[in-house]
Write a protein that binds this DNA or RNA. Structure first.
Lengths: 214, 214
DNA sequence: GAACGTTATTTTGTATACAATAGGAAAAGT
DNA sequence: ACTTTTCCTATTGTATACAAAATAACGTTC
């Protein structure tokens, strides 16, 4: 279900590049040449530059002065820092969500989790990745705070290429879904401290799986 | 002490606008016309657009489709959400800083706090604002995590125009400095939970002062 | 043969020109 | 008098053209 909204040229390019980078087609370190992209998208350099600028602002690309744009590439140290930041932000989301929980947001989370379980039991890795994304997005939404949600989503995007190899086996999927369940219990307790601790735990197991794959 | 680094045109414009918005010269809701800015900065629309784009990415401006750029303006509800997010991020910084504290970062924080106390006792509001900024920046730095530090700084920038009227009286300054001291104790305890709680407390008193001013 | 300096080429940053759309003003109809 | 519609103007989005700077290539000199 790809939303077929009419986008401006620069937005279209931005979305396409985001997609390709997330999918791993454009590996970290790849140089993005403006003219090549312009010809590829049947556009001029101007919208290409706008798209590259926005992607840089999101941390998906890095752009040196007069040095061109590259798909962001991180050292072990930097990756560790980015994941640490992501963990903290996710924990903050869980914390706020626990405070502001209501029937609707609880239902959203439960529905997403049901999809996770289904995908895990089916051993469908692709489906699980999507369902997992939706699960976390449901938590972001449950904060009732779009600003918090945006940062969280941004970090998730940003770490996408480095989580791509996660969930190698069916057991990984099931373990992840189980971890979700614990997390749900912590959030639904409406105890903000427990919720943030629970999220930290979940992110830790998730991070371990990502490491296993590399 | 304005750093006289040679900047590209678009960076210069970005910096100038950031400055003016932070200083309150460009009030929230103000429309920023591209051609006016271009003539004002003796430049073409191209670098102006790049600057506006980056400022939008930072949340300092809002840009509607074909609707131009405006200095971000928030409802009570939205402001509350932004401050909530800021509080959580600052708390996360305090948490990480407490875990990773070392002699250097402790010293940085103490130096910044000394400046805060001096400014508070002198009743110098402008100096205190700068010192307070430096104090929080020292904590960001103490996380050892530039990504976390960047988000925190971004939110601080973003809320700048809405914290501008804070610290009306000398007593406010002294109260704030006292609150800093409590926070330092919490962070220096190297207990991450206590540190984040302490930061939340500090931000709460800070937020109260901001509200008083409006 | 290696290192350095100079020149060419490629690529980014900026300027200008053109196209398209949104918002408003004026006119027509009820 | 008020609403609706049409046209115009102002402003953004995109394309192309030009300038400046960085990297690569080459030749010269030690």
């Amino acid at each position: 279900m790809t939303t077929t909204t009419k986008l401006s040229t620069s937005r279209r390019i931005e979305a396409a590049l985001t997609e390709e980078i997330a999918a791993g087609e454009l590996a970290p370190g790849t140089r993005l040449d403006e003219v090549s992209l312009a010809t590829r998208f049947n556009a001029s350099r101007t919208p290409v530059r706008e798209a590259l600028g926005r992607l840089t602002a999101q941390g998906i690309l890095v752009q040196g002065e007069k040095r061109g744009a590259f798909v962001a590439e991180y050292s072990r140290e930097e990756l560790s820092q980015i994941f640490e930041a992501m963990h903290e932000i996710e924990a903050a989301c869980a914390r706020i969500a626990a405070q502001r929980l209501n029937f609707l947001s609880k239902t959203d989370i439960e529905i997403a989790q049901a999809a996770c379980i289904a995908a895990a039991e089916a051993g469908d890795r692709e489906a699980y990745l999507r369902a997992n994304e939706a699960f976390h997005t449901a938590i972001y939404k449950a904060t009732g705070n779009p600003y918090m949600a945006e940062i969280a989503a941004e970090f998730r995007q940003r770490t996408g290429p480095f989580r791509a190899k996660k969930f190698a086996t069916k057991e990984d999927l099931i373990e992840s879904a189980k971890s979700h369940q614990d997390l749900i219990n912590d959030i639904f307790s409406e105890d903000s401290t427990q919720a943030s601790t629970g999220m930290r735990d979940h992110m830790a197991t998730s991070f371990l799986q990502a490491l296993k794959a590399n």
